[in-house]
């Protein structure tokens, strides 16, 4: 379909963009890669009065590692993040997640920031950010604030971003010692929206027991979630622990229901995929410990 008519504004600086957002508020939609917004415009699911294009704002496409955090500008394209040596070495979970994001022809243009701002519950990039305990940097006129990823995603396509704020960067905590990162998902076809996605950061200490564990789930609830796993620290990191944690996670989720899957099926995927990803991560970590 064709979109409803909209006005177009092309910002040359972040200041111009946030000035326009201050004026237009919810009447404006920010376009970065346009892989999600373009589809929604064309299907007339959104009808903004003005589309604010930030693609020519300089300085929003940088990847910088400092003080234990990798900061990615809002316009970093998914393919560039995937090929970036800083991401590969410092944020391996994101590198593992990116091949599952859309397709070769969409990763070329789609951005990290756009995926987070769009907040599809099955999206991989938000899931990686939540699992790692990252943050979203938002700028409005006269102020900048950082929102922890856990507080940013509020529901389906709904975030804590206020209408006058521009998402300018994401902050990714860098890899922890002795920690293995793993990501996998189940979708109807590779590159489709995940019915269930599992992201893991697992630390195994030298005696073979579990240290810190972060377990994130995507596509299951109305936003990416992290499962509470602190109680498992100190137990032997093996296949039976993987099974116990996955079983526990499956019993705690409140799955969404859509045309792709009902709640029971999603819960079963948490059980099966969770066990598989955790067990593989534990095995890798024990080998490295």
């Amino acid at each position: 379909m064709k979109p409803v008519a909209f006005g177009y504004a092309r910002a040359e600086t972040v200041e111009e963009a946030i000035d326009l957002l201050a004026e237009e508020g919810r009447e404006a939609s920010v376009i970065a890669g346009g892989l999600s917004l373009g589809a929604m415009l064309n299907m007339r699911l959104v009808r903004p009065r003005i589309v604010l294009d930030i693609n020519r704002v300089p300085g929003l496409d940088t990847i910088v590692a400092a003080n234990g955090v990798v900061t990615t500008g809002a316009l970093v394209r998914q393919v560039d993040a995937f090929r970036d040596p800083t991401i590969a070495s410092h944020v391996p979970l994101l590198a593992h997640a990116l091949p599952h994001v859309g397709h070769y022809q969409t990763r070329s243009r789609g951005t990290l920031g756009g995926s987070v701002a769009h907040a599809d519950p099955s999206a991989e990039i938000p899931l990686a950010l939540v699992t790692l305990g990252g943050a979203v940097v938002l700028r409005a006129k006269g102020r900048t604030r950082r929102v922890p990823a856990a507080d940013f995603f509020l529901g389906v396509l709904t975030t804590a971003r206020e209408e006058n704020e521009l998402l300018v960067a994401l902050e990714w905590p860098t890899r922890r010692p002795r920690t293995v990162y793993a990501f996998d998902e189940i979708a109807q076809r590779h590159g489709d929206f995940a019915i269930a996605a599992v992201a893991v950061a697992a630390e195994v200490v030298p005696d073979g027991t579990l240290g810190h564990l972060a377990l994130g789930l995507g596509g299951i609830e109305d936003r990416p979630i992290r499962i509470e796993t602190a109680g498992y620290a100190g137990r032997r990191a093996d296949a039976s622990l993987a099974e116990a944690i996955a079983e526990d996670a499956a019993s705690r989720v409140v799955p969404i229901v859509d045309l792709q899957a009902n709640a029971d099926y999603r819960r079963q995927l948490v059980r099966v995929l969770g066990r598989r990803v955790l067990a593989a991560a534990f095995e890798d970590a024990v080998r490295g410990a």
Binding site: M1, G38, N42, V79, R109
Partner: peptide, 27 residues
């Protein structure tokens, strides 16, 4: 499809294969 799924409209823009239905000409 005009929403980025089918791939029929893929062209190279600034050296990268991309959906032309998800780009507006004015951009």
């Amino acid at each position: 499809c005009e929403h980025g799924v089918c791939g029929a409209c893929t062209v190279e823009i600034d050296g990268r294969a991309t959906r032309s239905c998800l780009r507006y000409a004015v951009q």
